[in-house]
Lab assay of single mutants.
Amino acid sequence: NITNLCPFDEVFNATRFASVYAWNRKRISNCVADYSVLYNFAPFFAFKCYGVSPTKLNDLCFTNVYADSFVIRGNEVSQIAPGQTGNIADYNYKLPDDFTGCVIAWNSNKLDSKVGGNYNYLYRLFRKSNLKPFERDISTEIYQAGNKPCNGVAGFNCYFPLRSYGFRPTYGVGHQPYRVVVLSFELLHAPATVCGPKKST
């Protein structure tokens, strides 16, 4: 009989979020998941679920829940969905086509923008091939755009693969920082350890 609540607040209220190319993952297990707390949290810009209804989450049990978190621009949030393409979905964070879970995003301009620009948040701009679902690539190898080998030196046709967002408070909404948490639900042939409040007695 599990009684402790799942530590969703640790994920959602973290002081610093990860850059999207180096997205953070927390495994959540052996706890009671009260999703209504999240669902009623006012400032969400997006709360979209795939393969599961957000209002039914509290009735369900899962083997594991993974909480992935990172920061992207407002106009990139739409790429955090199954079957998407674009710089983020291709080179930074890719969801599987059969994704079961929820994508939760909110504007973090007050936290993550600075006058003069916040350059701490990076994304991958160049990559030889697209990421596989949930693949994480933190390499900083110089990207070779031409035929000539770069030998690890940036220059003509040789690019550092990461780019900084440089968030400023005055940017338009599409270019403002958004914090994103992706909850993915794993249902294995194993005992369920993460259940909603109704199922955990």
Results as ranks from 00 to 15, higher is better:
residue 129 S to H: 11
residue 2 I to R: 08
residue 141 E to T: 08
residue 194 V to R: 12
residue 170 T to Q: 14
residue 5 L to W: 04
residue 27 R to F: 02
residue 110 K to L: 09
residue 128 K to S: 09
residue 194 V to G: 04
residue 10 E to L: 06
residue 22 A to N: 03
residue 192 A to Q: 15
residue 1 N to A: 01
residue 47 F to T: 06
residue 174 G to D: 11
residue 164 S to R: 03
residue 131 L to M: 08
residue 64 N to F: 07
residue 199 K to G: 05
residue 157 N to G: 04
residue 100 T to L: 14
residue 40 N to L: 01
residue 154 A to D: 14
residue 117 G to N: 00
residue 37 V to W: 06
residue 55 T to A: 09
residue 130 N to I: 07
residue 26 K to Q: 03
residue 53 S to K: 08
residue 9 D to V: 06
residue 129 S to C: 15
residue 20 V to I: 01
residue 149 P to N: 12
residue 178 Y to W: 14
residue 173 V to Y: 08
residue 132 K to E: 01
residue 55 T to P: 07
residue 154 A to L: 04
residue 123 Y to K: 04
residue 128 K to L: 12
residue 36 S to N: 12
residue 169 P to N: 00
residue 123 Y to E: 00
residue 44 F to Q: 11
residue 140 T to D: 13
residue 140 T to S: 12
residue 39 Y to Q: 12
residue 123 Y to R: 09
residue 24 N to E: 04
residue 166 G to Y: 12
residue 160 F to T: 07
residue 199 K to R: 14
residue 119 Y to T: 15
residue 138 I to M: 14
residue 173 V to T: 06
residue 37 V to G: 10
residue 56 K to S: 07
residue 63 T to Q: 15
residue 200 S to R: 07
residue 75 N to E: 06
residue 139 S to H: 08
residue 117 G to R: 00
residue 115 V to T: 06
residue 157 N to W: 10
residue 170 T to C: 03
residue 32 V to W: 14
residue 154 A to Q: 07
residue 9 D to A: 02
residue 192 A to R: 05
residue 37 V to S: 10
residue 141 E to S: 07
residue 140 T to C: 03
residue 120 N to C: 12
residue 164 S to F: 12
residue 57 L to W: 09
residue 109 N to S: 00
residue 183 L to I: 02
residue 117 G to H: 00
residue 29 S to I: 03
residue 40 N to T: 00
residue 14 A to N: 06
residue 67 A to C: 01
residue 148 K to N: 11
residue 51 G to N: 03
residue 35 Y to P: 07
residue 201 T to S: 08
residue 115 V to K: 00
residue 36 S to D: 09
residue 138 I to K: 08
residue 46 A to G: 08
residue 113 S to C: 08
residue 27 R to D: 10
residue 116 G to E: 00
residue 87 N to T: 14
residue 66 Y to I: 14
residue 134 F to H: 12
residue 144 Q to K: 05
residue 200 S to V: 05
residue 29 S to H: 12
residue 140 T to Q: 10
residue 188 L to H: 07
residue 98 D to A: 04
residue 18 A to H: 07
residue 199 K to A: 15
residue 14 A to Q: 04
residue 44 F to W: 06
residue 73 R to M: 14
residue 41 F to T: 01
residue 114 K to I: 00
residue 33 A to F: 01
residue 135 E to Q: 03
residue 166 G to T: 12
residue 160 F to N: 04
residue 33 A to G: 11
residue 39 Y to W: 11
residue 4 N to R: 04
residue 145 A to I: 06
residue 115 V to S: 00
residue 59 D to R: 09
residue 41 F to L: 09
residue 78 S to K: 15
residue 55 T to M: 06
residue 190 A to W: 05
residue 193 T to E: 15
residue 106 W to Y: 11
residue 119 Y to C: 13
residue 22 A to Y: 06
residue 85 T to K: 14
residue 125 L to C: 04
residue 60 L to S: 07
residue 5 L to D: 08
residue 197 P to Q: 09
residue 46 A to N: 14
residue 58 N to K: 06
residue 32 V to L: 05
residue 44 F to C: 08
residue 3 T to Q: 04
residue 134 F to R: 06
residue 46 A to Y: 10
residue 94 K to R: 11
residue 170 T to P: 00
residue 18 A to N: 05
residue 188 L to G: 14
residue 130 N to R: 12
residue 184 S to N: 06
residue 188 L to A: 15
residue 146 G to T: 04
residue 97 D to R: 04
residue 201 T to A: 10
residue 190 A to N: 15
residue 71 V to I: 01
residue 90 D to K: 14
residue 41 F to G: 14
residue 148 K to E: 03
residue 142 I to A: 12
residue 63 T to M: 09
residue 147 N to L: 12
residue 73 R to K: 03
residue 174 G to W: 14
residue 66 Y to L: 05
residue 200 S to I: 11
residue 145 A to T: 14
residue 87 N to P: 04
residue 188 L to T: 11
residue 191 P to M: 05
residue 59 D to Q: 07
residue 194 V to C: 07
residue 170 T to F: 11
residue 75 N to S: 01
residue 115 V to D: 00
residue 126 F to S: 13
residue 83 G to L: 15
residue 155 G to V: 00
residue 91 Y to M: 04
residue 156 F to R: 01
residue 188 L to S: 14
residue 77 V to I: 05
residue 53 S to M: 12
residue 64 N to I: 10
residue 7 P to L: 05
residue 64 N to T: 06
residue 60 L to G: 15
residue 132 K to F: 00
residue 133 P to A: 04
residue 32 V to I: 06
residue 83 G to M: 15
residue 78 S to T: 11
residue 119 Y to F: 12
residue 190 A to L: 08
residue 187 L to A: 11
residue 135 E to H: 10
residue 161 P to T: 01
residue 130 N to E: 09
residue 200 S to N: 10
residue 16 R to Q: 06
residue 190 A to T: 02
residue 118 N to E: 06
residue 41 F to E: 08
residue 156 F to L: 12
residue 138 I to T: 08
residue 89 A to P: 13
